[in-house]
Structure formats: structure tokens, C-alpha cells
Design a protein around this nucleic acid. Structure first.
Lengths: 246, 246
DNA sequence: TTACATTTGTTCGTATGTATA
DNA sequence: TTATACATACGAACAAATGTA
């Protein structure tokens, strides 16, 4: 049974917000998957019993939040990380002259573990809960520039194997979508400066003690569900973290 | 004479975009200043000869771009940096436990100079063009944590004096608005890691060679007019640069 | 406190334009 | 060409917030 919706039982008092949340709920329930088209505006107005204007306002917000994409003449689609724009929305590392490039990714480590305090806080789970830890080394122009130490909760990534990670054809977040039905729609990042240690020296080839940009990232899905905790270390000799507001 | 607008002579073919740009033009022409209320929707529909829906869609975009703020029952206002939210939109330094706080600012240096290559590129002016350079030291919880080396083009800040900067009651961007009629609506930032030098040691009290977060910022106004170039150096021992997307 | 005018916010619905398959 | 889908434009009616008399 699809998600039913009764405008009369609206809680918020603001109809388009209720419609938005109903769509979000259907999305979280897996009714439509990433990359798929959702029903037409006409069908959705029938389903939710609202006017076209109200429905559009609801979807307007979902589009503004990068959860959906509209294409005139084709339909409205659930956002995917396959799209180039979407990838560079979360991957903000550029060459200092502004050049953008897809990184080459090498899986350096993979293991099951129990969440430490830092991971538990970031992922909103308990200390000791099972997690997967893996490390990627990212290269630009053939040179390693960043180490990603990634932690994901086992509860949400049950069947994850090293082989899958090594052989995934697309981006990591696209992989989360395709295999686990997980949509990363929001990230929070905290940036600090740090000195390179032995590990950085080994993986990036930088001297111990050279300055690195440290990026702590928490990735979330709908309803602020914590999906991934990531600590990155970037060699900023030739590259940097680029940011634009708004 | 106020900006006239003739829907019949619309260029873009999309009416609400024309209305938006007409409003933006009136704004840039100084018809309404920061913090002021603009005419009611009814008056603007009369002026531009469009329907309420079209006008609202135009203003929707201006609000989404943080150029205007709507208040139900009061009116629509030109955005100001006085508002707390607005300040923390551009000031992203927080304590590592998430605590936010207004910084105390001390003007450490001020002088007229000629733009070097880096400043010229950032501000889209010619090398050698006159600029003002000044340095602020920002403190949080009474401890200096960041140095801001700021460059602004003299052409846009004719009468700027050290005294004004030292005595400004509000935030810097608010000062730009009040005294020079300049609205900062967009910033672009690039983050790198660097090692502390003698100057950092003197102003921040950190050891030479300790890691600092280096932030290069270009602030722009309407039509991408470059307003300010700023190179910041942050001690990330207890603080960090926080970022949320979307 | 109350009543009222003003302003933005929400919801409705229709008509027409434009892009796509 | 045709059907479908989203985009734009219009405007009416009512709700909610605000400031003032």
C-alpha cells in the first residue's frame, strides 16, 4: 500500500509542508528510488488532494534542497550522485588555479571494528557498536593528495564487503544509493589544520610535519539519519578546499 | 525618476526574471538602502504591471539569495548584516564543541598601498591600483585566534580612514553598507593549511611552525562586483571552520 | 484591551507556453 | 504530429502577523 495522505488530517497547519513531508516519507520508504521519475504533478495533486500550486510549492523546496530535480517535458526525478554537478557539490577539492577534476580512488584499508567515542558521537550510535572502517587515497593528476578515513555503521551497511568497495563503478555516495538504498542529502564539515604524521608520509608522500588540511565530515540522509563519518587529510601544496556562498 | 519598467519591452522572455532584475537595478541604484522596507507587493505589481504571483516569484529568488528578507505583516526589507543570522552566515569560526560567539576585533594595522598581483586578480583591478590594506586580530573568549589581512579597492572606499575602522560600532560588512552603500551578498572562500610565521607568533601567540588554517576570501556585491579580498589565518587548536550543506 | 488597516503567507484554480518522447 | 510533463502568468479569496488608533 502506498503512502496515503489526507489533507484534512494535516498536522502542521501548512498544507504544502505536509505534502512535502508526505513525499519525503514515500521517498524514505523506498517508493521511488534514486534516479527514478516520480509521478506527474497531475497524479500527485490527485493523490494528495491539493491544488497544483500547493504541490509545486512542496516540490520547490525538495528541489531547493537538492533532493529532487525537475526536467521540463520529462518529469521530476529523485536526485542521484551520478550527475556531475551533484558530485562536485560534495567534492570540493580543486587545484589552486581553479581546475576541477574527478579524483582517482584507491582503497587502502578495510576492516570491521567497534565504534570509538568520536565515531559514536558523529554517527549517533553507541560506543562499541559495530562499524566498518575503510581508508581511501584520492589522487588528482596521478598524484595522491588526500586520505579519507571513512566510518559507516554496520547496521545500515549489513552486507558491505571489501570486494564491493574495490569494484564499485561509480562514486561512493552513488554506491550507497544503488546497493543500500541510502541517499546522502546533507553533509556537515569542520575544517582544521594539522601536521602530517608517519601515515600521511606513507600514503601521500609528504614530509612528516608538513601542514595538512583536516576535514571532518558527517553525511546524513532524510530525517538527519547519520550515514557516514569521514576524516580527510588534504595536502594543500597544489590543491585547496573551495567554497562558494550562497 | 525611479526605474521605469515596461513589461512589453521584456527582453528575457521570462517576465519574473525581468522584474527581479528591475528590482535589483533599483537596489544597485540606491533607491532602497540596506535595512529599509521596499514598497508593498501591491504597489510593486502596479509599478511593474505584473500579477501578484509573478512579483512574488521574483522576490522569492531575491529572498533565496539573501538579498531581501520578508516579514509577514511588516513588509519586505533589504537584507542587513546587522541581523545575527546574517553575521554568522559569513563568520564560520566556532569552538570545536560547537559553541558560537561574536569575536572581539582589534585593528592592528592600516595603510594605503598599491595592489600586488594577487590582490589585483582577486579584486579584478589592475596591478598598482590604489587599495587600502588593514589587519584585524579577532579574539574569542578573550584569546586571539585569527588574523584577517584585508584589502579593499580605494576606488570604492574613497574616504576610508583608520579612525573610522577603529570606531565602527557594528560588523565590518555592516560598516561597508552604512558608510559606503556597499552590500556584500556573496563570498567565495578557498581553504588551505599553512605553518605559522613570525607575524602569526606575534599576533596570535602560537609557536612558529604550528599549523594554521588559511582562508582566502573574495567578497562580492551585485553583478559580481569585487568588494574585498581577505586572507585569514586561524589557530585551530580550539576552534575550527564550520560548514553545512545544503 | 479591542478593533482595524496593512502586509505578507497560503491555497485555490485556469490558461497558455515550452520542452520532451 | 501528438500527447505528456513541467514552466510561467494570471488573479481571487482567505489566513496570519504586525502596528496603530
Amino acid at each position: 500500500m502506498g503512502t496515503q495522505f489526507d489533507a484534512g488530517s494535516a498536522i502542521g497547519g501548512v498544507l504544502y509542508k505536509d505534502v512535502k513531508h508526505a513525499i519525503l516519507a514515500a521517498l524514505a520508504a523506498g517508493e521511488w528510488k534514486a534516479g527514478e521519475v516520480i509521478p506527474s504533478e497531475r497524479k500527485l495533486t490527485d493523490r494528495f488532494g491539493v491544488s497544483i500550486g500547493t504541490l509545486r510549492k512542496a516540490i520547490d523546496e525538495l528541489v531547493a534542497e537538492n533532493i529532487m530535480i525537475r526536467h521540463q517535458g520529462r518529469g521530476t526525478f529523485v536526485a542521484t550522485h551520478r550527475q556531475e554537478d551533484h558530485f562536485f557539490r560534495f567534492f570540493r577539492i580543486v587545484r589552486q588555479d581553479g581546475h576541477r577534476e574527478y579524483p582517482r580512488v584507491r582503497l587502502a584499508r578495510f576492516r570491521r571494528a567497534k565504534a570509538d567515542q568520536e565515531e559514536a558521537t558523529a554517527l549517533a550510535i553507541a560506543v562499541g557498536d559495530p562499524v566498518f572502517r575503510f581508508t581511501n587515497v584520492l589522487s588528482l593528476e596521478g598524484k595522491p593528495v588526500m586520505i579519507d578515513a571513512i566510518t559507516v555503521p554496520e547496521a545500515r551497511f549489513k552486507s558491505l564487503t571489501e570486494k564491493q568497495l574495490r569494484e564499485r563503478p561509480n562514486t561512493l555516495y552513488n554506491f550507497y544509493q544503488d546497493i543500500f538504498g541510502i541517499n546522502v542529502i546533507r553533509i556537515e564539515e569542520h575544517l582544521r589544520s594539522a601536521l602530517a604524521n608517519e601515515d600521511d608520509h606513507t600514503l601521500l608522500g609528504v614530509p612528516v610535519g608538513s601542514p595538512l588540511l583536516k576535514i571532518l565530515r558527517i553525511a546524513s540522509s532524510f530525517h538527519d539519519e547519520r550515514i557516514e563519518y569521514r576524516v580527510s587529510r588534504l595536502d594543500t601544496t597544489c590543491h585547496e578546499f573551495a567554497l562558494s556562498q550562497p
